[in-house]
Design a protein around this nucleic acid. Sequence first.
DNA 1: GCTTGTTTTATTGTATACATTGCGCCATCA
DNA 2: TGATGGCGCAATGTATACAATAAAACAAGC
Lengths: 238, 238
Amino acid sequence: MSDAQAVVKRPASKAEGDERHEAIYRAVSDAIVEQRLKPGARLREDALAEVFGISRTGIRKILQRLALEQLVTLTPRRGASVTRPTADEAKDVFDARQLIECGLMPDVARRMGEKEAAELRDMAKRERQALRSGQQSVAIRLSADFHVRLAQLSGNAALAAFVEQLCSRSSLILAVYGHPGHLGCESHDHDDLIGYLETGNGERAKAFMNRHLKAIEASLSMVEEEENVPDLQQIFGG
Amino acid sequence: MSDAQAVVKRPASKAEGDERHEAIYRAVSDAIVEQRLKPGARLREDALAEVFGISRTGIRKILQRLALEQLVTLTPRRGASVTRPTADEAKDVFDARQLIECGLMPDVARRMGEKEAAELRDMAKRERQALRSGQQSVAIRLSADFHVRLAQLSGNAALAAFVEQLCSRSSLILAVYGHPGHLGCESHDHDDLIGYLETGNGERAKAFMNRHLKAIEASLSMVEEEENVPDLQQIFGG
DNA sequence: GCTTGTTTTATTGTATACATTGCGCCATCA
DNA sequence: TGATGGCGCAATGTATACAATAAAACAAGC
């Protein structure tokens, strides 16, 4: 195998295509979760294609994936935009998180080791730091990552993937219904939770997670913003 | 507006494209869930494109959606094939169903009305009939539909969609690890469950669903079929 | 001046063509 | 006779070109 003359022209032509797509997907997904792309923002295919240096074909694939995860909304002939969750959807998402994340706590407590606890504590610490230094985007991301990592520790990949989706959607919900400057997760909540899990107290952790999520949901102001010109609609709708 | 000469050639060129895609998606999805496409079956883009009369572009979109739902596996440069679930995945799926479907039972019992009960009874009846008349594919589908409909009755769209995915995957799992001729759900189990739900006995229904799912999982023979020539792999892997 | 109809433009939907790559067939050699 | 290497084919990955359509800008009439 003569590897001296082999690949010189394009190191990205081989199998990096998939990696690149994955990277672009994460870039867009991160921007949405970190609320740098706000709900309602339009995502034009041409613009994305130019920014990331690939064709519209690849962009469409990524957009469809994001649409299936409910992070972007694909309107026929109108294109893609960051999803603006409705109040109903918000309730469903938090109810789902309550059922699943709480239900997972006993398993997590059972599988919790020193290494895992240390990793979680590090995440919680970085989240607090980001919050203190005013890096809201970073804090939001770390908070979501914390919940996702927790679900992953349960050992159930299917549920972990679903929790990941729910956390991403929660970020959108906070962007729409949350009070500005008030992040969902209280700064020390996550540390307290780690404590319960470390001691193997699954039921305690479950109850705490329940309160934790309820507190986040309660902090939202669920006001569906009314249509700008609803008068005509009401006339015909009534 | 002279509409006499306008559109004569193709009445399907307008907005039916989306409907058509949805129909094709369902056709493939149904074939997989009903086990007419067995795990491991290859799904060539050209072949599907020709069968359904659209271009590969549309087929790829559908294939990617199915891949995100874990019904088909997309191997780079190798194409699509019906997913063959591993034993680990099977365990995760059934654990997830246990947590979610059982957790939903109280809500379902609360929202259960006469109309809903009648609909469920009809589904259960048709399932029994299909089972008796040897229509295995129909029975499998109706059984999955029953569980999905149940989840929908909880009122939580996010969880219902997830349960739908899990049920589809369960069908694949049964195809691989189930005993031939022995369907997952016992014929009268679903009727019993409806009874508990009708009387608003959510906790009873929850416990019954728990046993029901456990019974299905227990009926599987979890033998991972070993690789044909694993010796070399083990030498290098170890 | 505001509304309505028309044209223009910009953006998405679809198909097809080309490049790339994995796989099977076949010849050759031990 | 069996294994190995090369070769051709078939299938996917990607980009681009063309068609369809909705939004917007603009003009005309009430």
